[in-house]
Computed example of a mutant assay.
Amino acid sequence: MSEGTMQRAAQREVGVPPTPFRQWGRAPREERAPRAKRLNRVLVRAAAVPMVLLAAACSSSGSDSGSGDGARQTATQGAQDSASPSASPTVQAAAYAELPEACEVLSGKTLGELVPKGTKSAKKGSSSDLSARASCSWSSLDNNGVKGSQFRWLNVSLLRFESDASRGTGEEQAREYYQKQVDDARSVPDAKNTKAEPVSGTGNEATAVRYDLKKKEGAFKQQTVVARVENVVVTLDYNGAGLAGDRTPDADDLVKSAEKAAKEAVTAVAKANGAADGGSAPSASSSPSATTSPGKPASPSASASTSASASESAAKG
């Protein structure tokens, strides 16, 4: 065996490729495969770079557009909000904020004419808020023994209404209540000869209602004067009777006395709110608008209390 033949045999035994392959510049198949894979990966990555950049550019553009639209929408909404009117409702402020002391609305002279034997018999009505509702009553009995006696009973009720967004202005509420009081006085059960007539020079509006009421004690003459001054309603009840055979009092005299007393009570309301001469305080229509809270609206219990006073006047007779 020659030396060259022995060398080729030794190379095959250790797994070394024959020399001619390396001389031709070609690597074995096992070496070419990894190189091809690496090349493919490089090409794929190179192609992916423009796609990533394009996607990022599109995303950025869309984000900028959305941000612009959102900013414009926010600005438009803000302009609309600033241009929209306030949601807080307002009503005209009430003209009167206070009530006078109910037992002091009538002078001693007037009481001496209406209840001559009861000027010191004042009985103050109960109230949870004297600035919103108050009342006072007096009774008089001139007892002449077997010759009979003269009975008189007087009651003054004051009710003030506060402006409220849900109920309306104090004046509107007072106007409604005033009409209700007049209607109640004209519809007393078992009343006879009922008459109603307006009273001039007493507040913004006033009505006198009179009627006869027969009771076991005698024939009673009932007078009810309802007056409204701004946001306050004054209800004055006055009745008289001749008992134990005494003469029945004259209804015309009683109603004149009741009207005089009602006018005096209305004047007291105006004075309690700063009108030194007893005239009306500045009208609510001339005062600025105010946002009101449901501070002192007349409750149903207050209305019922005042109506009960009117009913009591007849019952006391």
Rank of each mutant, 00 (worst) to 15 (best):
M1F: 03
G4I: 09
Q7Y: 00
R12M: 10
V14L: 13
G15R: 07
G15H: 07
P17E: 11
P20W: 14
F21P: 02
W24T: 10
P28V: 00
P28L: 01
A33G: 04
A33F: 02
K37F: 00
L43C: 03
V49R: 06
V49Q: 03
P50I: 02
L53G: 10
L54W: 04
S61A: 15
G62K: 10
G62W: 14
S67M: 11
T74I: 11
Q77T: 11
S82M: 15
S82I: 14
A83I: 09
S86L: 07
A87E: 10
A95H: 00
A102G: 09
C103V: 08
E104V: 06
T110G: 03
L111C: 04
G118L: 00
K120W: 03
S121A: 12
S121E: 13
S126G: 08
S127H: 09
S127P: 08
D129L: 12
C136P: 09
S140E: 10
L141M: 14
D142Y: 04
G145K: 11
G145C: 10
K147P: 00
W153M: 02
L154P: 01
N155L: 05
S163K: 04
R167L: 13
E171M: 00
R175F: 01
E176Q: 08
Y177R: 05
Q181E: 12
Q181P: 01
R186A: 14
V188M: 11
D190C: 06
T194M: 11
T194Y: 08
A196W: 06
V199W: 03
S200L: 05
G201A: 03
E205Y: 00
T207C: 06
V209H: 03
V209A: 04
R210V: 15
K214P: 02
K215L: 14
E217N: 14
F220E: 07
K221E: 14
K221A: 09
Q222T: 13
Q223E: 11
A227K: 02
R228G: 05
V229Q: 13
V229I: 13
V229M: 08
T235W: 04
G240Q: 15
G242M: 11
D252S: 13
S257I: 00
K263R: 12
E264D: 14
A270G: 15
D277V: 09
G279W: 01
S280K: 14
A281D: 03
S286V: 06
S287K: 14
A290N: 03
S299F: 08
S299L: 15
P300F: 04
S301P: 06
A308D: 13
S313P: 02
A314W: 09
K316M: 13
K316F: 07
